[in-house]
Amino acid sequence: MYTQALDVPQQNPDKGPRAVENPEYQAEFDAKIDAGGYIEAKDWMPEAYRKTLVRQISQHAHSEIVGMLPEGNWITRAPTLKRKAILLAKVQDEGGHGLYLYAAAETLGVSRDELLEALHTGRAKYSSIFNYPTLTWADIGVIGWLVDGAAIMNQIPLCKCSYGPYARAMVRICKEESFHQRQGYDLLLAMMKGTQEQREMVQDAVNRWWWPSIMMFGPHDKDSPNSAQSSRWGIKRISNDDLRQKFVDATVEQAKVLGVTMPDPELKWNAERGHHDFGAIDWDEFWNVVNGHGQGNVDRLAARVKAWEDGAWVREAALEHERKRAAREHQAA
């Protein structure tokens, strides 16, 4: 999902959970996890748990703010004032989601600047989905429907993850995410009631976004080496393949109502399994994009870095303004 790069081998792999670091604390920690309890910021936690959370939450945060770019691309070209207001609100939400998540990551003892530095230098990953271009207005609808729809599937279980600050951030995010998916579907419904050209535009966007969307759930369970440990820690509640299946099953009906087809000839109902079967995923493409060779990787990161650097003088001036104000107050006292 937004943290799919957790499956990329790390450059400096941890030496494994430091389980015996403090047996007494570890036992307490395990008991809390087993009882379905929450770990809070100042509680003792194994170093590997902390590191995994920093990676996961920050990847998630990076995905939210990089996700603003492909959609922000369409704000000035929204077809009506109503759609523009909706898109502005959605993009603002994504920025907010990034902030909730950075704040949650910071409770684990990393600074906001360190996290952003990791993103800007390419050390940290964000979701590969945002490296695909948004070619037409229909893409904005399809992103809401499929990309945010997939995100919701993945994020609902995270509302109950074992780390309190992350779980609470996810509760806020999930409440807002539903608006994102529904406005996207609503936008597409409007286009499907339009001209033949508009309907073709929607189908074309679905064709381009379908496979990347179901890739968002990450590698198959058998190829997801870190999943078992994350499940043990209560960070991951449902497996990649189970979530993907749930998403495919839910989406098929929505596509029918909309009047589009998925670009997968093997997609069909399997009565025996009680689920839809679907074709093989092109994992080479997935890893290619995760590893930085997608259509938009270079542009996205460059836009992020430029925004950060262009804003530097504002951040500095605001601090200096406060320093002077405090000095004046001090003098007057």
Partner: peptide, 11 residues
């Protein structure tokens, strides 16, 4: 309900 970074109280 959460936290923010800001240079001063007003912001």
């Amino acid at each position: 309900c959460g936290s923010v970074h800001a240079p001063d109280a007003k912001l």
